[in-house]
Structures are given as C-alpha cells and as structure tokens.
C-alpha cells in the first residue's frame, strides 16, 4: 500500500495553483488535507501524474464572514471551522454536521472544501452545503466562477469542476433568525461513511429536507409547512423516488426505510430549534 510515483507541485499562490492545473488538467489531483486522496493513493485506486498540494497557499486559509455567508477557504481544516466558538450561531447546521466528519485526527488535516470537491454521496458537508443552498467558488487561469451547490455536485464523485479549475472556497449561508436545523446520521460505527444522513432546515413557511447516502448526490426537497400533515406520504414517495444503492452494509431498501423513519425526527429537531 504505497502510492505510485507522481510529480509533486506545491504552489505558493492561487495563481500558481491555477497555472499548475491548467498545465496538467485531468492528470493532476488537488490535495488540500489529503485525508481521502492519500488513502486512495496508498490503495492505488487513483492514477494521477501530479499532485497539486494547496495546503500552504496563504490565500486559501481564510475564513471570512460576510453579511450573508461564511466563506471557507480551500486550505481551511474541518477542525478549524469546528473550533470557531461562534459557529453554532453562524451556521448552526455546520456545527451539527462537522463532528460526524471522520474523526478528530482526520479533521485536523481534512478540509471542508476538499470534502465538498470530492463529492462523496455519503458525505456530510456536501449535504449541508446543498441543503443550505451554499456556493462553490472555482478559479482557473480563465477566471473565477461561482456555482450553486446543486449545480456543483453532478453525481457520484463527480462535480462541475473543470479539470483546470480549483475550488478556492465554499460559502455557507449564515443561519437566519428564527430558523432551526436538524442533523442525523446512521453509520455502522462512529466516523464511518454514512449509510444515510439527513439534514433539515425549518424556515418560516417551509422545511428543507436533505438526504445523503441514498442517491448519487445529496437530495434536497422543500416541503411547505402546510404539507407537514402529509409528511409521511411525502417522505415515503421521496424514498421511493431516490431508490438507493446497495453495498455490503446496507440494502437499498434499508436506506429507503431509514429515510422514512428518520426524516420526521430530523424535521422535528429543526422545528424545535426554530423560533
């Protein structure tokens, strides 16, 4: 379990990183925390010619709070975000979901942006970003563009990132007054890939329900409060729509039934936190 040979590139600026990606394109993989990528390199699951290590690009290590969102740079580790004392007020869902991401030791190096860029259908952070309607900032030598989370994640480990683009930041909308959120995850062991993860946001007139681990990307649906009386039917139909996939730990049917059984408690949690 040792990586194949590769060229190691360590840019000092975003511009250099963009140049490197422009040169290597599909042949390069971006490494921020490396907590998923190096494991895959060790297992020889990934065949890449170059690693672009962005962990030491100062521009990417910023956490910026604007009036509308929390912008997290691509080199910011999960634990750095989690340790913000004000996180529970800023992005309450992130404060609830982050402790489920890997373990303390991997969160020390693993980044928020890396998890979102990897687009694992079971991951907590892509689900959270999708549920909150956050954005992904992409940069290349051609320029900068900003995508909505729903536009960014295209499917299983697949995103709208072009091979020459670098995810430089993600933007989580700040929690609004009166909103409440809920998060629940089922995994075989603490810290494992989720079998199913659910997130909910209760807004004044509607509930946003997000489901990870069932389809090839997070699924987000908005349920008007007026429809909550029919929640079981709605969730039942949603589970049937999402279908689910099979692996050794869960059948698709089990995944669907988890959605059916857990959507309500997660929504209740969101409602109970909302004003």
């Amino acid at each position: 379990m040792k990586p194949r040979p590769f060229t190691y590139l360590r840019p000092d600026t975003v511009a250099e990183a963009a140049e490197a990606l422009s040169e290597w394109k599909e042949a390069a993989r971006v490494m921020a925390g490396g907590q998923t990528l190096i494991a895959m390199l060790n297992l020889r699951l990934v065949d890449c010619e170059a690693i672009v290590d962005i962990s030491r690009v100062p521009e990417l290590s910023a956490i910026t709070r604007t009036k509308t969102h929390l912008e997290i740079g691509a080199a910011v580790t999960q634990n750095r975000v989690l340790s913000r004392p004000e996180l529970a007020q800023e992005v309450p869902l992130l404060a609830k979901a982050l402790p489920w991401v890997g373990h303390f030791q991997t969160r020390n190096k693993g980044t928020v942006c890396g998890s979102i860029a990897h687009a694992d259908p079971s991951s907590e952070l892509p689900l959270s970003l999708a549920l909150l309607g956050g954005e992904v900032v992409l940069r290349s030598t051609r320029g900068t563009r900003v995508l909505k989370a729903a536009e960014f994640q295209r499917g299983l480990l697949s995103t709208a990132r072009e091979p020459d683009e670098l995810v430089t930041a993600v933007r989580f909308p700040l929690g609004a007054k009166g909103e409440g959120t809920g998060f629940r995850e089922v995994a075989r062991r603490h810290g494992d890939f989720a079998i199913v993860s659910l997130a909910a946001r209760a807004r004044a007139d509607a509930i946003d329900l997000g489901i990870g681990g069932v389809a090839d990307r997070p699924a987000v649906r908005t349920i008007p409060r007026a429809d909550l009386s029919r929640l079981d039917d709605i969730v039942d139909a949603l589970a049937a729509e999402l279908g689910g996939f099979e692996d050794i730990h869960a059948t698709a049917r089990y995944r669907r039934d988890l959605v059916r059984r857990l959507a309500r408690p997660v929504i209740d949690e969101a409602l109970s936190c909302s004003a």
């Binding site: 729509e241 279908g243 059948t251 698709a252 049917r253 039934d257 059916r260």
Partner: peptide, 16 residues
C-alpha cells in the same frame, strides 16, 4: 415496503 420504487434503476434494486 409501503411504496416500492418506481424508477428504472430502483425497479431492478427491488429485484436484487
């Protein structure tokens, strides 16, 4: 199951 999946992929999953 209350409502089995109707989608193409899901139908086969029900079979599996």
């Amino acid at each position: 199951e209350k409502t089995p999946p109707r989608q193409a992929k899901a139908t086969s999953t029900a079979a599996t």
